[in-house]
């Protein structure tokens, strides 16, 4: 070991620790609720794309209806809260469970087939759920209020049990912790047998099967886990916004956005979805705010162009070149010439 590599390692670790410290101390010096709200949404998107990535990235399929599971999470915890006063903290697990079961049921027939079937089926399923909710005022004992959507009843003041806070700071920490947890889950899965099997089955299903992998089974479990975690994010979204309606929370656009953030960031990598959210969300928000007043639609033309350019020049996502850049920087400051494997 030469000193350069030692130094490189120290700098690498220091930077990462600083990043974590930075992220966790943001509310101490950022007081503007608007800024916090933007960051919260950023993390929520990073969270949802990371859960999408569990099946869309690692299992190598393309789910295009994940908003259905966000919606299942939001609606379940909210109607339980309205009808029975069940705390959203408990309701979110119920939502997750329902989402997982639904995801597994949808996954069983479709995950055995060619990927295109899966993509189209999940998309049609997502649209089906939206149409169903938009046409339903009363679902069993629950009032879901059709296309107008529902409000989470306001509880005055900070109420931990009701998952409602006056300040944005608790929301910030909750979603940050949730994001860290799913990142950890993703990292952990990528290092154990099911992770290897998922990746193998996603790339070459026949070869994986001949090596002892029941490919469809692992994909179905990944789908279940992904839907479960996605629904938890749905509850968070409901508690944060306190009002939601089918076109927004169950919309096709939302499903596509989740998929594209992950794909542009780098599907199947751990950091990819986060990178995607960090880059794309501000871009799409800023262009929407500043351009839609000038020429409606222009921001989506730009978004379309970005999609095409990334796919043409960085089909594996932006995380690859960013990693290279970071490594180049590390080598530069620590004086190590050659690329070092970590």
């Amino acid at each position: 070991m030469n000193t350069g590599i030692q130094k490189r390692k120290t700098i690498d670790t220091t930077l990462k620790v600083l990043l974590v410290l930075f992220v966790f101390t943001v509310p101490l010096w950022v007081t503007s609720p608007t800024t916090l709200q933007i960051l919260i949404f950023l993390f929520l998107y990073a969270y949802l794309t990371t859960t999408w990535n569990l099946v869309g990235g690692f299992a190598g399929v393309l789910p295009l209806g994940h908003s259905a599971y966000v919606g299942i999470g939001a609606y379940t915890s909210t109607v339980l809260f309205i009808s029975y006063g069940v705390s959203p903290w408990i309701g979110m697990w119920a939502g997750g469970l329902i989402a997982a079961i639904v995801g597994i049921i949808i996954g069983i027939p479709t995950l055995k087939l060619r990927g295109a079937y899966f993509a189209l089926s999940t998309m049609a399923f997502g649209e089906g759920v939206r149409v169903l909710v938009e046409n339903t005022m009363q679902l069993g004992p629950f009032n879901i209020n059709g296309p107008r959507g529902i409000c989470v009843p306001l509880i005055p003041g900070n109420n931990i049990a009701a998952f409602q806070f006056l300040s944005k700071v608790p929301y910030y920490y909750i979603i940050l912790v949730m994001l860290c947890v799913v990142l950890f889950i993703t990292w952990y899965i990528s290092r154990i047998r099911p992770g290897y099997y998922l990746a193998a089955g996603g790339e070459e299903p026949e070869a994986a099967q001949s090596l002892g992998v029941n490919v469809a089974k692992y994909k179905v479990w990944a789908m279940g886990l992904s839907c479960f975690l996605t629904a938890l994010g749905g509850t968070f979204l409901a508690q944060l916004a306190l009002y939601f309606y089918p076109k927004q929370i169950l919309g096709l656009d939302f499903s596509f956005e989740l998929a594209f953030i992950a794909l542009i960031g780098g599907r199947g990598t751990i950091a990819g979805p986060v990178v995607g959210a960090l880059i794309l969300r501000p871009v799409s928000e800023l262009t929407r705010i500043y351009l839609s007043a000038v020429l409606p639609g222009l921001h989506l033309v730009i978004f379309g162009l970005v999609l095409i350019l990334v796919m043409l020049y960085q089909p594996k996502g932006l995380v690859g070149p960013l990693e290279k850049l970071y490594n180049w920087f590390l080598n530069k400051v620590s004086g190590t010439e050659k690329e070092v494997r970590t």
Binding site: A200, E204, E206, A207
Partner: peptide, 10 residues
């Protein structure tokens, strides 16, 4: 397999 099927990106 006759036509080899490695996991290319791994």
């Amino acid at each position: 397999f006759q036509i080899v099927k490695p996991f290319q990106t791994k």
